[in-house]
Amino acid sequence: MGRLTLVTAGMVFSGVFAGLAWAVWTIAEAPVPVSLPTLVSENLQAAGVEHPVTAVLLNFRSYDTLLEIAVLVIAGIAGISMSRTRSLEDPGLRTSDSLLYALERWFFPVMMLFAGYLLWAGSDRPGGAFQAGSVLAATAVLMRLGGVPMDFLRPGVMLRLGLTVGFSVFLVVALASALDGDVFLQYPEVITKPLIVLIETGLTLSIAMVLLALFVAAPIDPAEELEEGGAE
């Protein structure tokens, strides 16, 4: 990388900064035609949940969330198919830290409880499927580092089910309402909240599973022989 290129790139991105800052300033000064927060709070009664962010995520703009979980599942599957881990019991993948072992025993139940609370809290205060899924995944990563056997991570029914449960539940609910004569992704009014909680539970499991699967897929032992037709 030459000095000239560096200076040129610096100048280009200074220009980018100036342009973007000008754009942000212009947008901030311009009057807004529609106030989205007002729109959301006016329609919150019909959303089935009391927290505006959850209402947007799982009702007003649930299309985004549906596609997001699809992207996650694809990323998870792609990550798993790249993985080169020989076995889940590989001692090299474990830490032998007694402090971690001791903490793990305390953390595991507390974090499970916390994930469950976050999932439930999502309907009327900050929380929801994403936060709960992340906490669940973090718990599982801790378990993994501590060498707790997790058989469900092997390629098989449990892994597939875990990866796809969120997307499938979401899609089934969306299609069921479409087949019932409503718009795609329009929940029936009477059971909106149970449906949202059901979808969120599925999402939590799937998000945790995708993140964990990607974490497990990452390590590659450099000394390991290639198993299938690689470059060598």
Binding site: R61, E68, L211, L214, F215
Partner: peptide, 28 residues
């Protein structure tokens, strides 16, 4: 505004997954 907040929340999760996938690809 809850709408951009929800979008960012979605974005964060996708970012984590995409980053992890990128790390897997990189190590490969």
């Amino acid at each position: 505004d809850p709408v951009p907040q929800a979008m960012v929340l979605t974005g964060i999760v996708v970012t984590i997954a995409a980053t992890a996938l990128a790390v897997v690809l990189m190590r490969r």
